[in-house]
Design a protein around this nucleic acid. Structure first.
Lengths: 247, 247
DNA sequence: CCAAAAGTGTTTGCTCTACACCCATGT
DNA sequence: ACATGGGTGTAGAGCAAACACTTTTGG
């Protein structure tokens, strides 16, 4: 494998290696169940390029820091969230995705490893550091973002929908105890109004057998009180690798 | 977003940025239908570290070259394949994944953006460049690979199985005209013996409506001759974004 | 009592599974 | 003729969509 990991600068024709800056950008989603909105966390840029424009929270990777560590670091610098789900999304690294590449005489490439996160909205307290603008934006009302961040978000949004359908991410982001309506509403705000009928959703989920009824009832205004359920990780374990459908 | 894309070296405490070499490594799969084996392309290393060990074909990214371009370049340096499917797999970038990081005084990080590829076996002619060892290995008889390449391959293998179930990659890798047995066999070698009954597989696929019978029959030894089918891209188009199950 | 929310049940049609069986060819 | 692989059909189980209905609360 002669061409892999050759020492930095090669003198062979046409083989000049690119010099990279590696950053991590996060697509952080959250569901505001009170207002039925799917939100994404944006921060205002205070530097060139794209000064004054909204962008995804990101950072450059430090020495000794893994990519995932970097992703968690940005997240914890922006919000205080304890319950969350995070995974790598995609790596965007084409040339010309950052305007600085053109200007820099040194021909530097900016590579972005993006991460996808879903956090519990109620607990996610934004950290205002005085200077930076930081805000939750509804995904259907996004402004034009810096770099290729609109593209990253679109990609992240697709991933979110898939995750919800095929894996139990929802429970990472719901409170410990929740009603089936809470769960249904979460799915509805992410997947759209008519993804399923409530009663069918309900029986499908219950049949899977990893939601345990605590027996405790809660009343939310008018209407019959709802049972509080808990996600039973043990009961779910055997299903972990099977293709699940929560439709 | 003050911490994103800050100019190279920062002097703030604990914020020393990592210096990156970005490589692309390919997990290239192929199905040998004659012998019913799932193969992966490995190359022998002729440099330290891991000299004399097998590894995934990889390269460092050049100036002006996109990640995907780099992936295609390695591929075309190793095999002459015209029909293939390729997509990004995952980015491995933790510290300590490359032993050179420890030795280099300069604290360089080696980041690997891995790509997943599926190529048509019959056409994939290996390019022996005299020096390098290069070979197809059955995925169930892998040697110990350099770096974290075993992990990458495992990840790629999982992706392959998913791709086959939910997307029409198989048709990128089958000949223009194929029998339903060819298709079934491809699925069997990748997903395992008992993923489905032939007759059910058959009717499910045909009902989807994007396989058109050419009427031409081929005889392979004994037994009734089989119809040659063609993948009808137009008929498939409307199904593109729907969740398909080829199980 | 009525509206609202939670929870149950039923009907209809379809898909999945598992086989059994027929068809066309080489030897 | 018979083994071999290709292709068709079917009965039963289970699931999903749609919707009607009951239960329990607040006002």
């Amino acid at each position: 494998m002669p061409r892999t990991h050759r020492k930095t600068t090669s003198s062979l024709i046409g083989e000049k290696l690119a010099d990279f800056r590696v950053g991590v950008d996060n697509a952080i989603f959250s569901v505001d169940t009170a207002q039925n909105r799917l939100l994404v966390l944006l921060v205002m840029r205070h530097e060139e390029p794209f000064l004054g424009q909204w962008s995804l929270p990101g950072t450059l990777v430090r020495q000794g820091e893994s990519l995932e560590d970097a992703a968690y670091r940005i997240l914890s610098e922006k919000i205080r969230a304890r319950n969350l789900y995070l995974e790598q999304l995609y790596t965007f690294g084409g040339p010309d995705r950052d305007p600085r590449e053109a200007k820099d005489s040194y021909d530097v490439r900016y590579l972005s490893v993006s991460y996808f996160a879903l956090v519990r909205f109620a607990e996610a307290e934004l950290i205002a550091d005085g200077v930076s603008g930081i805000a939750w934006y509804p995904v259907d009302q996004l402004p034009e973002l810096a770099f290729d961040h609109n593209k990253i978000l679109e990609y992240g949004h697709r991933r979110l929908r898939n995750k919800l359908e095929y894996s139990p991410v929802a429970f990472d982001v719901l409170p410990e105890l929740f009603t089936l309506s809470d769960l249904f509403q979460l799915y509805t705000t992410v997947l759209g109004e008519n993804f399923s009928d409530y009663s069918n959703f309900r029986s499908r989920l219950l049949k899977l057998g990893f939601l345990s009824d605590t027996g405790v009832k809660v009343s939310r205004g008018a209407g019959r009180p709802a049972s509080l359920y808990r996600f039973d990780a043990e009961a779910f374990a055997p299903l972990k690798d099977k293709p699940l459908v929560f439709i």
